[in-house]
Design a protein around this nucleic acid. Structure first.
Lengths: 241, 241
DNA sequence: CAGTGGTCTAGACCACTGG
DNA sequence: CAGTGGTCTAGACCACTGG
């Protein structure tokens, strides 16, 4: 299972093994202690701690000094807002299986929409996103027509849009500004996400720009709050006057 | 500067020293290599890497294999990343007049609450916050009993809690982790905020810690989404496969 | 090639939790 | 008290970047 000849680092192998075991319900609440994992995998403590640190950072585990390392029960998927990650990446980091269903991929006339960041016709891609087969979010991406048309030539149910943009189309995503809010789910959103009409959904509006600040994508996402939350780290260095 | 007799861990001391040096403009783009830092601080590589890892996780530094460790430009490290420091300040910045109504200030038995970050009885302060006389948010702050009691001796309808903690009580707030989500307003929340029962409210859970990571405050806020949204800037990580 | 970060070992002592 | 995670040392070899 853990193979030191494998080019995948040992701490990554252990990390993955732990996620698999946690998902399989092998541990009720607590994972084995670091010393026990050292024994089990015949590795050093550094390696074990490195594996655990990753899962703690992802919000899967939680360490308590003197007691042990515990599984973060039933916690929704947590996205770190300081990094702009694709939902696919985030879901994978949480040890779940991402999938997508394409709802729409179509041109939108400039006069029909209120998104004014591109001064041209748009192409809209809408997908229902799943984690371990459960509906998680609806994502609508808006691109300039040429970009959208090119994207639509790929299989958008299996591909990661960020991958396509960055690796296939040579577009560099640099930074994003996101607005997080909430609204009551309308009938369509509720139906797709499998929640009652009127229930709260987390909403994200996002503009991604390149290094020069030119807009590349407008995005609107609707997330099930019981399965997905946003996490932010903040600092307070020398704010005092 | 770096003192191994200091109870503050060496890697934290080095971490802080690096931040100070970066802010002072001591490095143009790249910080010294790990081997150089080992020399400079007379510590092991593990310790240096631990110090750097923290700053990478915070988005201040960025490592590039084979090249070095670089400063992440444009990441403001001197302020809260998301304008959540003091609601008073944020409201003022929007050109509105902040005010507060104290709803509760009371001790909570350790056995009655599920907040387990302090292993002691808590003191809870709950306020309804207004902007230009309109209800905007409900804020619940939880502190260790001694801190809460001291806070309650001030006029919490006019004072800013962060001001009291930092300037009157000499408590240093270093960093916070926040979780943003949403839920349906219950009758009480709806009534206080002046929205229909069941309507969506933005929720924030926050733990503020000192420089060593010891928790200082637990916080839960309920915001009217029509009057308050969260804005976050994110960067795309350079490290993808 | 020298220099960089990435991975890993095999120890050690400490501080904290609970019985 | 035994067991836990937290910190730290002093090494080693590897993979990658650039001249």
């Amino acid at each position: 299972m853990i193979d030191s000849n494998n080019p995948i680092p040992l701490h990554v192998q252990i990390s993955n093994a732990l996620v698999k075991q946690i998902k399989a319900g092998m541990y009720k609440d607590k994972i084995p202690s670091e010393r026990e994992l050292i024994e089990a995998y015949t590795v050093s403590r550094t390696t074990v701690r490195q594996a655990i640190a990753k899962l703690v950072n992802d919000g899967i585990l939680k360490k308590v000094h003197g007691k042990g390392t515990f599984i973060n029960e039933g916690k929704p998927i947590q996205e770190w807002l300081s990094n702009l990650n694709s939902l696919t990446e985030t879901i994978k980091n949480m040890g779940m299986a991402p999938s997508s269903k394409l709802l729409a991929a179509e041109q939108i006339d400039v006069k029909d929409h209120s998104i004014d960041i591109f001064n041209m016709d748009l192409y809209m891609i809408e997908r229902l996103r799943y984690a371990d087969g459960e509906p998680l979010a609806i994502e609508k991406h808006y691109y300039p027509l040429s970009v959208g048309l090119k994207l639509s030539s790929y299989d958008l149910e299996t591909e990661t849009i960020f991958d396509l943009l960055e690796n296939e189309m040579g577009i560099t995503l640099a930074e994003a500004e996101q607005i997080i809010s909430t609204e009551d789910a309308d009938a369509r959103v509720a139906g797709l996400l499998g929640i009652p009409k009127g229930a709260s959904v987390l909403t994200v509006e996002r503009i991604i720009a390149d290094e020069l600040g030119n807009p590349l994508e407008f995005y609107r996402g609707y997330y099930r709050p019981d399965k997905y939350v946003f996490r932010v780290k903040s600092k307070r260095n020398g704010l005092r006057s």
